[in-house]
Design a protein around this nucleic acid. Structure first.
Length: 745
DNA sequence: CATAGCCGCCTTTTT
DNA sequence: GGCGGCTATG
């Protein structure tokens, strides 16, 4: 029997795959480890493998592929279908898979299936409460540090109980208490954080042999991409899912492991053969992406990592241009330089889509953005979560979350008096107090508002009105997927789609009115809400069984790269972390300076430096044709102009330093432009910029917010210099120089 | 109870 | 130099 899929897959096999790629694609039963260097066609191997499995008679339903991002999952789905594989294979991230498992087996996992997923802002609120409840000082136990520590524990599947048993010093003991309280708070809110999704799923699978067997037998073939960046919880989940058959195929590259800080454990991939002794190992070392010039640079850099299995990148493309390292005065200059280079590429007929700029930290995007606007270079900043972090978006989403999960106190407190409806702190505190005395959730306490004696009648009426409004929204919502196929039916029964519901809430909650009253100020917000409603209606149309809870959980797992649109003709700007898995013809990496790349927070430990090096390696190996690396001599960090030191990685790439300047070894093949730059001129330039930061009485200055003004006083005490300005608006302000961004005219 | 204005915090990377 | 949170004031 020949069906089209078979034809296609054999075509690809014969014409396009290398022998080692074939070996991975057609490996049938048992564990398989694919160690794939950058640009080795790994993604294609995985999609071909999915197609080949289906082709050989495996039902798509029995295949589970796990990718690193939702974007990668979506792409893989489409590629597999393009190869002739019918849809139906489960392809998603670990987190999405865990959400599905936890919803399906909620009862056995001991959770309510309508759980909210808390992001870092929600987590911060909870941890602050937890620290407060433990009667601790927030300054000695800062929320960020606590959350980090808890996240690390969860990634290692250490429960509060287990941790409190092993805690021996004061900090650990305190942390154990906070961790336990934090978990209780989440439980009370019926919420899980990102790490809980993994931890709860892992424990569920390990505790219940039935569920483990059921899932392992459903997913007879398990494929895990980017295995080098899995954490311990994910490893345990993978092990459980493969337990019935050992048909686990892991792919990855230890040299591209860049998420150690998030709990990723490189030992997972290094120990794969120990965990699955029968594993067949396939190495893909040929690189089909980059020119030998680029690969040489990448190779030379990564060779400096000590803890590494030697691996070579075998180029297959003909030689091209050498990588260029450029030096600039400061970040504005650097951004301008990048924009100029891009214009040159474009003049040669290269499309904006084929160009990307990578940086270490998000804050670096600002200078680039300014330069791109000025040079009219179209760009897209790949930062997806930003949209969902906007105040107005979070507001609407909080209303939606309350509908599915009334226990979600964080969301409830966000909206109860937003827009203002006369429910201030005093009233809310009284309800909270009542709730905690009766052991009720805040939402249930609202239902009893009339019985709370301390609350004045007027406030009782407002509380009830709020509650009625929410209950009213709830009536029209398709909350649940448990209805499954019925949900389309429900929509016919005059239930509202997610988009319609969001729109109704926006109008009837008063949010729209309050934004409109703000006039121009609220204009952006109104547009954002429009965009949210559009995105929701896209969800409604593209999802088989749309439901509010599914929608909310999906967008909670939305990531930065998920917004990257290769089809829009713009230069892509993103962090090096986001760049993983992507490729571009022309790549710019900016800010190759000590403290930035490698980042100062990672400068202490060798392991951390090695990870920074891998991060740079990932960036370099995204480039197909040309690679441009740059650094600036001065950079403004937290409002201060600092002299920088070129990144040690530049020297490892083949740059050597003499006392005053850089010398390029002949064999290194790296061009250093701007080298003839007149140092005198540079110093003048920088000096005048610094000089610009000194003021005298009577100087006319321009401030972004307050406009023109006259300097009344200036105290020059270095970085904390302050300046007193009488603005033409009549206001007299004392401003800290390092933050004020005053322009001398 | 609402609002404006001030203080102090944080800034690495993200599912 | 932005933002949330707190406080003083209306």
């Amino acid at each position: 029997m020949t069906h089209p899929a078979q034809q296609t897959i054999h075509d690809i096999l014969d014409r396009q795959l290398t022998p080692s790629q074939k070996k991975a694609v057609f490996h049938r039963e048992g564990p398989l480890l694919v160690i794939a260097g950058p640009g080795s066609g790994k993604t294609r191997v995985i999609t071909c493998r999915i197609a080949a499995l289906i082709d050989s008679g495996v039902h798509p339903h029995n295949i589970c592929a796990i990718t690193f991002t939702n974007k990668a999952a979506e792409e893989m789905r489409q590629r597999a279908i393009a190869l002739g594989a019918s849809g139906g294979a489960h392809i998603s991230t670990f987190h999405s898979l865990c959400v599905r498992i936890l919803r399906r087996y909620a009862q056995q996992a001991g959770i309510n299936p309508n759980f909210s997923i808390y992001d870092s802002a929600d987590q911060t609120r909870c941890i602050k409460d937890a620290v407060k409840n433990c009667e601790l000082d927030a300054t000695s136990f800062p929320p960020g540090r606590m959350l980090n520590a808890i996240s690390t524990l969860k990634n290692k599947l250490i429960t509060p109980d287990a941790f409190s048993r092993q805690a021996d010093d004061y900090f650990s003991k305190t942390l154990a208490k906070v961790y336990a309280r934090y978990q209780d708070i989440l439980k009370e809110h019926n919420a899980l954080d990102f790490d809980d999704l993994l931890m709860d799923a892992a424990f569920l699978l390990e505790r219940s042999a039935d569920i483990r067997n059921e899932l392992s037998n459903r997913f007879k073939f398990l494929l895990i991409d980017e295995y080098q960046d899995t954490n311990h919880a994910q490893y345990r989940i993978a092990r459980a899912l493969a337990s019935a058959h050992d048909n686990i195929c892991a792919t990855g590259d230890p040299d591209q492991s860049i998420y150690r800080w998030r709990g990723a454990d490189i030992r997972n991939i290094l120990a794969f053969e120990r965990d699955w002794p029968a594993a067949v190992v396939v190495k893909l070392e040929e690189n089909f992406r980059s020119t030998p010039n680029i690969l040489e640079v990448a190779d030379r850099l990564i060779a400096h990592n000590q803890k590494r299995k030697e691996k070579t990148l075998v180029p297959t493309r003909p030689p091209g241009q050498d990588a260029a390292v450029r030096e600039f005065d400061d970040e504005a200059d650097e951004a301008k330089g990048v924009a100029r280079q891009i214009q040159q590429l474009v003049r040669k007929g290269i499309g904006f889509t084929d160009i990307a700029v990578f940086y270490r930290i998000n804050a670096q995007s600002r200078a680039l953005e300014e330069a791109f606007i000025r040079s009219k270079t179209p760009y897209q900043i790949v930062r997806g979560v930003e949209f969902y972090n906007r105040k107005e978006i979070r507001d609407i989403l909080a209303y939606l979350k309350i509908l599915v999960n009334p226990s979600d106190e964080i969301s409830l407190l966000r909206i109860i008096n937003n827009p203002p409806r006369g429910l201030g702190k005093t009233t809310i505190d009284k309800v909270r107090d009542y709730a905690s005395r009766r052991g009720l959730t805040l939402y249930d306490a609202l239902k009893n508002a009339r019985q709370i004696d301390t609350i004045p009648d007027a406030a009782k009426i407002r509380l009830t009105a709020f509650l009625n409004m929410i209950e009213n929204f709830k009536k029209d919502a398709v909350l649940d997927i448990s209805a499954g196929e019925n949900s389309k039916l429900k929509i016919e029964n005059r239930k509202l789609s997610v988009a319609q519901l969001a729109e109704r809430i926006f109008k009837e909650s008063g949010l729209e009115k309050s934004l409109k009253e703000q006039g121009a100020e609220g204009k952006d917000a109104l547009e954002n809400i429009d965009e949210l409603i559009n995105a929701a209606s896209l969800y409604d149309r593209q999802t088989e069984a749309p439901s509010l809870i599914d929608y909310l959980q999906q967008i909670s797992l939305f990531s930065d790269v998920d917004v990257y649109d290769p089809a829009c003709r713009r230069v892509a700007l993103m962090t090096l972390h986001c760049a993983k898995g992507l490729e571009f013809d022309h790549v710019f990496i900016v800010g190759a300076e000590e403290g930035l790349l490698p980042h100062e927070q990672s400068a202490d430990e060798d392991d951390e430096i090695e990870e920074e090096r891998r991060l740079f390696f990932v960036g370099i190996t995204r480039a197909k044709t040309t690679l441009h690396i740059s650094h600036a001599r001065y950079r403004t960090i937290r409002g201060q102009l600092l002299r920088t030191i070129p990144s040690q990685f530049l020297f490892e790439l083949g740059l050597e330093s003499s006392e005053t300047d850089y010398v390029i070894p002949a064999q290194a093949g790296i061009q250093l432009s701007n080298i003839s730059e007149d140092d005198e001129r540079l110093v003048q330039n920088i000096k005048s910029k610094i000089e610009n930061r000194k003021f005298r009485r009577g100087d006319i200055v321009l401030h972004k917010k307050f406009g023109l003004g006259t300097v009344k006083d200036f105290t020059d005490i270095g970085e904390d210099s302050s300046v007193v300005v009488a603005f033409n608006t009549g206001q007299v302000k004392s401003l800290l120089l390092k933050y004020a961004n005053l322009k001398k005219l």
